[in-house]
Amino acid sequence: MLFLATTLDGLQMGLCFAVLALGVYISCSILDFADLSVDGVFPLGGVCCTIMMLRLGLPALPAVLLCFPLGMLCGAVTGVLHVKFRISNLLSGIIVMTALLSVTLALTQFLTGTGYTTTIFSFRSADLTGLFNGALTSALTDRFGRGAKDYITIVILLVIVFIAKLLLDLFFKTRLGYLLRATGSNEKLVMTLGKNSGSYKIFGLALADGFVAVSGALYAQLYTQYDNTCGSGKVVLALASVIIGTAVFAHFRRMKDTTAVILGAILYSLCLNYLVLIDTNGIYLKLLNAVLFALILIFNEKISAFLSRIRRKKEQMQHG
């Protein structure tokens, strides 16, 4: 029973972080830009979504979607710092991240109205008529019992992730998408096409952080609470998802990178959740975390060597 609950929780987390991983995939893999602003944009998405819902009374879906342009704005700032003012990519990300930490803190204060006596801000789940607690959910819960809520949450998240993936895939087939891919791997070519590669870099970073903010918004709703520290470590988590996804699922040649990244995020989150079962005190969690990450990559290397050996043998048999 505990195992099932852990699995469901891991799936929800994984799907939520899949959106984040898609964003980091754009900045890290497509644009070859290590964007550290993620750690700041993620909580910003969470707090802004919460404010829009609780203070401005917006329904959940528009609140989540509005986080996208918000994230884009932050990404654009990172991009402008890097492209126009020639600050290195790591530093421009750190600058935006640091600034956003204060911004989110200030926004939290605005939300409570009593100042931030505690850094963790939480509220009753009944207040948050969010995506996962909506009318549909309650109707189905009535019918299938309390356990149904977890499955419904997963289905809703799946739909969101699937739409995000489809849109991104489609985008990368357009002319603008092509140019963005070219910007990441050969800026000089973009220039000889008569285009300013800097502008496209800024646009790409904006797009990436849009996804990150949406992921933060989903995260806040998933746990029906906003936590100011929820941003820390998100870059690492997302990068791990992207790397695991693209490495492990590279064996499936026809699989798209976006699918691999999503599966990577789910796989990694599931593993993280199972670790909690092993180490209930949570002291060695990070250590186990690191060991797991290393193990996945090492095993993956072995698997790919094994697969290529089989492939070679097959070819030899055919020729011989």
Partner: peptide, 12 residues
């Protein structure tokens, strides 16, 4: 596509 806008139309 050089000289034309790189917009959201399908590339190929």
């Amino acid at each position: 596509n050089k000289g034309k806008p790189f917009n959201l139309r399908l590339a190929i």
